[in-house]
Design a protein around this nucleic acid. Structure first.
Lengths: 196, 196
DNA sequence: GCTAAAAATCAACAGTTTGTCTATAAATCG
DNA sequence: CGATTTATAGACAAACTGTTGATTTTTAGC
């Protein structure tokens, strides 16, 4: 889809994206001005407006790149029948590990809730069927269970990103998968006695 | 602690806080200017700077009010020995229900990650001991489990706030408590066979 | 390599918001 | 009531914004 375009375009946008990621490590997104960013990466301010409308539009572009990457890898083995959720988790943790800087900014203290929401939606829409097939669960309260699990995974992710030299992506994918799996299983078994 | 101060001060700050909550329903916090807010509530711009340094400082004040309210209720029955987590959940869901407008803004799509983090920390620091006592869990991976559960609760909260005429706070507290409880229990039972 | 096209730079512009300042009017509490 | 505190009003320089037009540089395709 995305044409490769002019080399200058690719270079400029990469500079701006990396520059924003760098600035976001020192201050929150709302404090970052266009002028400050273009000074940082030594690009003319007019050039910025040639590509983006404002800082948030640039951030959107960065998020889209990440999302595209994740979606592409997920799609690449969607025909795998079993272990769907585990392999999706592995993919996501791996990609995030490769983009640690920007991801810790996006998911951290001064992060972007909309991005987190998109992440949750992706996991939910691609991974939940896997669990639905294993447990026959009633429609109603399962909604809360899904929200719980997806946000829970983000929480693990957040914790993982906040520590240096942390566990490898594969380990994290395992922990996340097992936790969600057991949570669903417990929910399934305990549903009749504890809820409603 | 908080002196009641002058009536004018209370009135002005309340106006600004309500005005921001109202504006946050239509646009994200970063797009809201001081000028726009004072026009909305018909207060002189100089007056705003008499109380707050900027919009984010005002938001901080709002969050602090909420946090104080939650902490006060939690403290009020900390001497209760059992069912600690459940009663904390009930308190929190009740207070949030009473402040639905501002809470859905803070936790929603364009919300404030720092606020969410504070909420998770409160639940974790006040409610986790309750679970620790019931399950003897190893120190290490339990950290991820705690993050998972706390973020999971926020996820439920988010889902709950996003729907009109939703379940009563007591019901939600029950669902959240049971989900966390069973997740921990499953984690405890399955730990040896599934992780590490 | 040459050339037409595209992109980056530069300087300048009006418009807005910001934060601070003074002086003045109004409201509060004792 | 009267002293004190707070809100208002207007003005100010400073910074950032978003756009424009003219110019230079780089690119892709032949």
């Amino acid at each position: 889809m995305e044409q490769k375009k002019d080399r200058r375009i690719r270079k400029t946008r990469a500079q701006l994206q990396n520059g924003l990621a760098k600035l976001m490590k020192t201050k929150s997104i709302n404090e970052i001005t266009v002028k400050e960013l273009v000074d940082e990466v030594d690009i003319n301010r007019s050039t910025f407006y040639l590509h983006y409308t404002d800082i948030y539009n640039l951030l959107e572009d960065i998020e889209n790149r990440l999302m595209d990457e994740i979606l592409r890898v997920i799609d690449s083995h969607k025909n795998v029948t079993d272990g769907g959720l585990l392999s999706i988790f592995t993919d996501i943790f791996t990609i995030i590990d490769a983009n640690r800087d920007i991801c810790s900014a996006l998911i951290g203290e001064k992060g972007d809730m909309a991005f987190v929401q998109r992440m949750e939606d992706i996991i939910a829409s691609h991974g939940v069927h896997d669990l639905m097939n294993q447990f026959m669960l009633p429609e109603r309260p399962i909604h809360y269970m899904i929200s719980f699990s997806m946000s829970g995974c983000i929480g693990m992710l957040k914790e993982w990103l906040s520590t240096e030299n942390s566990e490898p992506p594969e380990y994290m994918a395992n922990v996340a998968y097992n936790t969600v799996f057991h949570a669903f299983k417990a929910f399934y078994n305990g549903y009749a006695v504890c809820l409603c």
